[in-house]
Amino acid sequence: MKSYAKKHYLLVLLAVITINFFLPRLMPGDPFLYLSVEEGEVAAAFSEEQIAQYKAYYGMDKPLYMQFYDYILKLLQGDLGYSIYYNTSVLEMILLRIPWTIFIVLCALFLSSFFGTLLGAISARLREKPADKFMYLFMVVFSEIPSFLLGIVFLFVLAAKLKWFPLSGGITIFAPHTSMLSYMGDLLHHAALPIITLTPAGLGNFYILARNSMLTVLSKDYINTAKAKGLKKWQILYKHALRNALPPIIARIFLSLGSLFGGAVLIENVFAYPGVGKLMREAVLKRDYVLIQGIFLTVAVTMLLMNWLADVIYKKLDPRVFR
């Protein structure tokens, strides 16, 4: 059972690597071709000879299967290659950007799982009362709104008009920070809007999950036993219900990382936040195959890992579940 799972993940990984390699190369357009110029820019032009030279340098003059072979070989050595546009090591570029993405994703995940579970528990406790109904509706509405649209609203209202938050960026550049505290404050100030935007999508899921599992647990026999024992309602909720509702929620934490990552790609572009998502879009626009591949692989592997972790943890936490 277990070995099958591992083999399975390995196969998926292989498929991802293959797609990852071929797809960007099949994109129309040539990274070294500069025939047009953006407004207010100066035309960059590479001569035919220069293009040929660059192609040879990046190994793009070889047949595709040879390139694939080289790619796998390099990957095994942990080498993600060299960015065509930025002339920099891809691994280096990703390592510089990924903490920013992980930072907002984890913060949003923490907020949404914590508040989602909490509100779900409260809602279950207040079942069928107006507060529960209102909360349910509110959650449904907020979790359905595409997060980048929410981000645009926040950007215009909270950042551009009210000026409560900075319009873009991850930190005030070249600002002298006297203490760690002011530095952290600046960091959070910039990250606030992306995090707030990213949170609602997950919040609804956690809320509904928590509410449903609490409701199921609350209807179980041992809760009645506990009630008969004279335990207070909140005690029951905490001691029995929440504990039993926890496994699916924890598994969900790992699973939702994937969709949060996807959401972050868009959000980062709304707020010009210096994470992987913003880099990804630039890489696509510049046809920087090597960079696209690097980012894509990093994100895919992270998600694969998270799915696997969710699997493992879920099995460990809840022996009833097996597939």
């Binding site: 071709l33 025939l35 626009l285």
Partner: peptide, 11 residues
């Protein structure tokens, strides 16, 4: 089409 694809068509 995307600008790089347009450039490619031009070439």
């Amino acid at each position: 089409v995307e600008s790089k694809a347009r450039d490619n068509a031009l070439k």
